[in-house]
C-alpha cells in the first residue's frame, strides 16, 4: 500500500516535470515519425515486401522496440542531474520506499514510451498497417517490460558511476551490439548463420521476433511467450538490482 502510494507520488512529480518541458515531447514524437516517413519507404524494395503495409508490419515493431530500448537506456542522465542537485539525497533521508524511488521514475518512462508507441501505431494505420487490438496490447506489454528493464538498469548504473562522462560511453557501448544483434532495423532472417547464432544470446532479438509475430497476427508463435517471458524475468532482475542501488549510500 505504502509502496503504491510512494510510487504514485514519485511518478506524479516526474510526469509533471516532463510535461513542463515541451521540447522533450516534441523530440520524442518527431524522431520516430521521421523514421516512419523517411526510412520506412526504403524498406518495401529492400525487404522485397509485396506491399507497403507488409513492410510496415516488419519495420514498425522493430522501431518500437528500438525506442523502448533507447528511451530507457538514456534515462540515467536525468538521474545524475538529480543526484547532483541533492534531490536524491533529500529523498533518501525521508521514509519513502526505496523501490518507489525507482519504480516511480521507471513508470514515467514506461508511460511516455507507450504514448510514443500509440502515436506511431496510429500513424502507421494511416499507411495501411492493420493489427488486431488484442495482439497490439500484448505487443505494448512487451514494450513496457523492455522500457522498465532498460530504464531501471540505466538508473542503477547512473547511481553507480555518478557522472555523465562515464555513463554516455558506457550506454553507447551497451546499446550498439544490442541493437545490431537484435534484428531491429532489418530482420535477422537475412543474416548469415553465425550471426544468427550469436543473436540467439541477445534477449532483445527474442523480443523483436515476438513483437513482429504479434504484429503479424501470429499469436500462436512460440517467440511471443518466449520473448515476453525472457523480458519479464530480465525486467524483474533489473528492477531488483536498481532498487538496491537506490537503497545503498549515494555519493
Amino acid at each position: 500500500m505504502k509502496l503504491a502510494r510512494d510510487t504514485w507520488l514519485i511518478f506524479q512529480r516526474q510526469t509533471q516535470l516532463l510535461l513542463r518541458n515541451p521540447v522533450w515531447i516534441f523530440v520524442g514524437v518527431f524522431q520516430p515519425v521521421m523514421y516512419l516517413l523517411l526510412f520506412a519507404p526504403l524498406l518495401k524494395p529492400a525487404l522485397n515486401a509485396p506491399t507497403q503495409a507488409a513492410a510496415y508490419k516488419i519495420f514498425v515493431p522493430g522501431l518500437l522496440v528500438l525506442l523502448a530500448i533507447f528511451g530507457g537506456l538514456f534515462q540515467g542522465f536525468g538521474l545524475i542531474a538529480e543526484l547532483r542537485a541533492g534531490v536524491i539525497e533529500r529523498s533518501r533521508v525521508t521514509p519513502v520506499s526505496r523501490l518507489a524511488l525507482l519504480l516511480g521514475r521507471s513508470l514515467r518512462d514506461v508511460v511516455s514510451l507507450i504514448a510514443q508507441a500509440v502515436i506511431i501505431t496510429l500513424l502507421a494505420l494511416a499507411f495501411d498497417l492493420r493489427v488486431f487490438i488484442g495482439n497490439l496490447l500484448l505487443a505494448y506489454l512487451m514494450l513496457a517490460l523492455i522500457a522498465l528493464m532498460t530504464s531501471a538498469v540505466s538508473y542503477g548504473i547512473a547511481l553507480k558511476v555518478k557522472s555523465e562522462d562515464a555513463l554516455a560511453p558506457l550506454m553507447n557501448t551497451v546499446a550498439q551490439p544490442v541493437l545490431l544483434l537484435s534484428g531491429i532495423l532489418l530482420p535477422l532472417t537475412f543474416a548469415p548463420g553465425w550471426l544468427q547464432g550469436v543473436a540467439k544470446w541477445n534477449p532483445f532479438s527474442w523480443a523483436v521476433e515476438g513483437t513482429r509475430a504479434l504484429f503479424n497476427g501470429d499469436l500462436g508463435n512460440d517467440r511471443v511467450w518466449q520473448g515476453l517471458g525472457i523480458i519479464a524475468v530480465l525486467a524483474a532482475a533489473g528492477v531488483f538490482w536498481a532498487a538496491r542501488q537506490f537503497a545503498r549510500s549515494v555519493r
Partner: peptide, 12 residues
C-alpha cells in the same frame, strides 16, 4: 536533514 550542498530542483 538539510544538506550542505542544497537539495532543491531547478524546475520545481
Amino acid at each position: 536533514y538539510v544538506a550542505q550542498g542544497g537539495s532543491t530542483w531547478d524546475e520545481s
